[in-house]
């Protein structure tokens, strides 16, 4: 089954089948890679890897929806960087004297660096979206509970209330459409609608609070660690996380074997390593991300 919802659903996929600690570690390793690396080719490989992982987890369509939303940040990031950066040497447009801002020289380096930063931001958005779609939030919050039960449960409730309130808002809007003249129009109508949604959410919050009371939330104790053997998917994603981290460090560090195959400097001029090493690092990162999805044994919920 494929998911288009932007909320977690238990699906038959290797990532869903892995425990939350492992899922979180895997996602953090990719996020770290996205933060550490700047080389466009390597970032593109990470990007392709995450999209492929989304498809492998059965949430590809939902991930693309999130990507469309995240793409909105691309233009402002590039634009702002081009306008504020003074470090590039290759000027492609001169805006003249901008008073307190100095000379308005727009450089190719600033455009490229802005695009790289936007790509990194979108990559982080994509990875966290994948985590919210495919890593069990209850299990994740259970990890936090050992530190603070109430904070974790509050976060869990907020997570749960988002789809519930979204459904409430949809129901309310639908009810307004059945009025003879349609939904109340204008700013006043919209304010009335928002007020009704808020009032409904308060009612719902009171009901949920009553449920929590009788479930013993007020006397919440410290939850205990669960012990379960590592599954094949736990092991695969752990190995993948370690590989992604190791490759990222290898790609950046000039002292490492391969000597910074993913080195990239935007300023003052664009200088990027590009050779077999770069391609090998990009391919290895892509493979490390995607390979755990190849084993589909024992993934049924």
């Amino acid at each position: 089954m494929r998911s288009t919802s932007l909320f977690y659903r238990r699906l038959a996929s290797p990532l869903h089948a892995a425990r939350a600690t492992v899922g979180v570690a895997w996602v953090l390793s990719i996020t770290t890679a996205a933060v550490l690396l700047y080389h466009p080719v390597v970032l593109a490989a990470l990007f392709a890897g995450v999209l492929a992982a989304g498809a492998g987890a059965g949430v590809g369509r939902a991930l693309l929806r999130a990507l469309r939303l995240a793409a909105i940040v691309w233009v402002p990031i590039v634009l702002v960087n081009v306008l504020v950066s003074r470090d590039g040497l290759t000027v492609f447009a001169r805006l003249g004297d901008l008073g307190p801002f100095g000379q308005g020289n727009l450089t190719v380096e600033a455009v490229v660096y802005g695009a790289v930063i936007a790509l990194k931001v979108m990559l982080v958005v994509l990875v966290t979206t994948l985590a919210s779609l495919a890593v069990d939030p209850d299990e994740t919050l259970r990890l936090v509970r050992r530190v603070s039960f109430r904070s974790a449960l509050t976060a869990s409730l907020a997570t749960r209330l988002i789809p519930v309130l979204a459904a409430d808002a949809q129901r309310l809007a639908e009810a307004q459409r059945t009025r003879p003249g349609g939904a109340p129009g204008g700013a006043r109508g919209r304010v009335a609608l928002v007020r009704a949604v808020v009032a409904g959410s308060l009612d719902r919050a009171a009901d949920v609070a009553a449920t929590l009371e009788v479930r013993g939330f007020a006397g919440a104790g410290r939850s205990q660690r669960r012990r379960a053997p590592l599954s094949r998917h736990d092991l695969a994603f752990l190995a993948s996380a370690v590989a992604v981290l190791a490759l990222s460090i290898l790609a950046r560090a000039p002292w490492a074997a391969g000597g910074g195959a993913a080195r990239f400097d935007a300023y003052p001029e664009i200088r990027a390593a590009f050779g077999l090493g770069t391609v090998a690092i990009a391919a290895a990162l892509l493979a490390a991300i995607v390979l755990p999805f190849a084993d589909r044994r024992g993934i049924e919920p």
Partner: peptide, 8 residues
Amino acid sequence: ETQLVMST
């Protein structure tokens, strides 16, 4: 609906 507070 208001008695189910967790995701699974």
